[in-house]
């Protein structure tokens, strides 16, 4: 589904790479949490999958496409297979709920008949069946995020990327959103979610990939927000040693390699 082969991403003007030699494979139907402090490279990771950025080094395969060589003319068609949700919802304020969801189908040229069927289905799925004529500002934050999710899934994407989708929501509402994402995942969609919400990650017991300073320091199935094992005190991870057990197959030995907590890890890298 998604494969990174020693991918590095450096933005011009900085010496520290946003992503440093990342190896990773995410399989079809997985539900993956991407955790790590701000600036650890989560967003760069998601942007690389979307091909909003090109990697500085390494190669990326998504849905059988080699993104490094995907021509920019084909990028739009590639993106139709991805659904994306953001922390700030990104709804169009002057369109109704229905039109917001329908917009994505209109701009990729779906027929009116298809839109009339698919949009109510998607809204029903996210639990907003009765609110299709409301405007975004008339909805609560949780409802707005549901609209955004409906928009992301209405075209039945194979992969769903969520960048801190619960970041602006209270715990109860966030839990509702997570239930929704879980249901979408059960439908066969691969979900990759970047988050800071420790409670959610701990509760869901799904695969967790932790990034620190652009490197994968942890990749465990059924992990928590912080590693379950007791961190070894004073151990300074060598960059080479922190190379992840990248492929999902090797990540099955859970719990994974013991690691320091993110904060002490960061200091260790700086030292």
């Amino acid at each position: 589904m998604i494969r990174f082969d020693s991918v590095s991403k450096s933005y011009p003007g900085t010496t520290r790479p946003a992503l440093n030699s990342v190896d990773l494979e995410i399989l079809k139907g997985e539900f993956v949490f991407l955790v790590g402090a701000s600036g650890s490279g989560k967003s760069s990771f998601l942007r690389l999958i979307l091909k909003e950025e090109n990697p500085t080094k390494g190669s990326i395969h998504v849905l059988g496409q080699h993104l490094n060589t995907l021509s920019s003319r084909k990028v739009p068609y590639f993106r139709r297979n991805l659904g994306v949700v953001f922390q700030d919802f990104r709804l169009l304020p002057n369109k109704t709920v229905f039109d917001n969801v329908a917009f994505t189908l209109q701009v990729i040229g779906k027929s009116r008949g298809f839109i009339q069927e698919a949009v109510p289905d998607a809204l029903k799925m996210v639990g907003l069946a009765g609110k299709s004529n409301r405007f975004p500002h008339e909805l609560s934050g949780g409802e707005q995020q549901r609209v955004a999710i409906a928009r992301a899934v209405v075209n039945k994407p194979a992969i769903m990327l969520a960048d801190e989708p619960t970041g602006n929501l209270d715990p109860a509402t966030a839990a509702g959103i997570m239930t929704l994402l879980e249901r979408i995942n059960l439908g066969g969609t691969t979900v990759l979610m970047a988050t800071h919400d420790a409670g959610i990650v701990d509760q869901m017991k799904r695969r967790v990939i932790e990034l620190i300073g652009g490197q994968i320091v942890r990749d465990e199935l059924q992990g928590g927000y912080q590693t379950q094992t007791v961190p070894t005190q004073g151990r300074i991870p060598h960059p080479a040693a922190s190379k992840p057990a990248s492929a999902a197959s090797t990540a099955t030995q859970s719990p994974a390699r013991p690691m320091a907590s993110p904060s002490s890890q960061g200091e260790g890298l700086d030292a």
């Binding site: 739009p76 068609y77 990729i108």
Partner: peptide, 17 residues
């Protein structure tokens, strides 16, 4: 630009945009 951002995100073709 909001509409444009969403169009690009959901894969509207360049010609359409």
């Amino acid at each position: 630009r909001r509409e444009l951002g969403i169009m690009r995100l959901v894969g509207a073709s360049n010609r359409f945009i």
